[in-house]
């Protein structure tokens, strides 16, 4: 049993080291200071296409969405992979049929809103998209 615990601890230590390497060299970095960004919400079925411009000191998109809840009415749900958007501007996505697709300057985001850093001048577009 002691041997198994020792091996497990060694494996966890190696994984922790790799994780530190990931955070240091590969993970998206948040930008400090004030940033000017745009949030665009597109809901084709309701003919909604609105753009909001904000200046913010926040680091991640989810934080800005929380701050601007009165404008954007963003509803976020926690999942094992972080937060995902379940509603915007009072429109809730039907999880069986649609989801809010997130793009940054027209390119698909590769991480969720809680990991996506806010960068000066970027446009973050949420489009209600059919599955």
């Amino acid at each position: 049993m002691k041997k198994k615990i020792g091996i497990s601890a060694a494996v966890l230590a190696v994984c922790a080291l790799i994780f530190v390497g990931y955070l240091t060299f590969l993970a998206p970095k948040a930008q400090g200071g004030q940033k000017s960004v745009k949030i665009e919400v597109v809901i084709p079925s309701k003919n909604i296409d609105r753009t909001f411009q904000y200046k913010t000191d926040r680091s991640y998109v989810s934080e800005l969405l929380d701050d601007k809840k009165s404008d954007l009415q963003a509803e976020m749900e926690d999942s094992q992979y972080g937060k995902f958007i379940s509603g915007m501007l009072g429109v809730k996505a039907d999880p069986a049929k649609e989801y809010f697709h997130l793009k940054v300057d027209g390119t698909d985001a590769t991480v969720g809103v809680s990991q996506l850093p806010l960068e000066n001048g970027k446009i973050y577009t949420f489009t209600l998209t059919s599955l």
Binding site: I7, C15, L26, T110, Q115
Partner: peptide
Amino acid sequence: YALTYLISGIPFDLAHGASNFITAL
């Protein structure tokens, strides 16, 4: 897209690998 997807998944893959190793052990 494939590469960024795989890189962003590294923390989850590490957790998955470590937990599989320990539970099997």
